[in-house]
Design a protein around this nucleic acid. Structure first.
Length: 216
DNA sequence: AACTCGGGGCA
DNA sequence: TGCCCAGAGTT
């Protein structure tokens, strides 16, 4: 995509998906951190259901650490991967108290030093909890960016770099949400609804398919 | 780069 | 049933 195509793509994304957030319910950076850790390989709907209950009594590192690993595992079971997640949540809560004064850190380096926190989770926390410009590349953002040609890359980090380069910083956070909505509703992994896609005329994958069918 | 963890949704 | 899914860590 050239710059004018990128700008048009951003405008259409804004027009269609606006400022609606997609994601996790939270009342503090700590809640968002834990909810995002739980969301690995699990839909946000289910995470929100689990955390609505969990955060009633356990919404700080201190309170979380009053749970045994087994108790926590039971509470988060429906999110899947609960064995690892329970361990990591307790370790991370402990580290927040011992290393970060009980606060959630704000830098990529510090966040990813926490067990169970990778690049995607760190970007979500920085962007959504602290308002720091960041783009979290999950499977939706990865797939949609590559298909459109908005930012291409073989792995998550390459796509993140591409988006940071191609998009104005002011649009990083909003574009992240809009790309996820688009990936869910239209540009799905299998059987994407290209016939109703408002970005089809800009999409590199669509153009490629058309040029191939024209050759026949 | 490939593999593992894992319960739930959907065909 | 079998396949897939808003990831992260290890080898």
């Amino acid at each position: 995509m050239n710059q004018s195509e990128i700008n048009e793509t951003l405008k259409i994304l804004q027009d269609v998906y606006g400022t609606q957030k997609c994601g996790l319910d939270f009342n503090s950076p700590y809640e968002l951190l834990i909810a995002t850790m739980l969301s690995a390989q699990c839909t946000d709907v289910r995470v929100n259901k689990v955390t609505a209950e969990l955060f009633k009594d356990y919404n700080t590192p201190e309170k979380m650490l009053s749970l045994t690993e087994g108790e926590l595992r039971e509470k988060i079971k429906s999110c899947g991967l609960s064995n690892t997640k329970a361990k990591n949540i307790l370790k991370t809560s402990h580290l927040l108290l011992s290393e970060f004064g009980g606060e959630v850190p704000k830098t990529m380096k510090e966040l990813t030093s926490l067990p169970g926190v990778g690049r995607k989770t760190a970007n979500v926390v920085m962007s959504n909890a602290f308002g720091i410009p960041a783009i979290a590349v999950d499977t939706h953002v990865f797939r949609v960016s590559n298909r459109l040609g908005l930012a291409k890359g073989k792995n998550v980090l390459e796509v993140e770099k591409g988006l940071r380069q191609n998009l104005p910083e002011s649009r990083w956070s909003s574009a992240h949400h809009q790309l996820i909505w688009h990936g869910r509703k239209i540009c799905s992994a299998r059987n994407p609804k290209c016939e109703v896609c408002p970005l089809a005329h800009l999409c590199e994958t669509q153009k490629l398919e058309h040029s191939q069918s024209n050759l026949k």
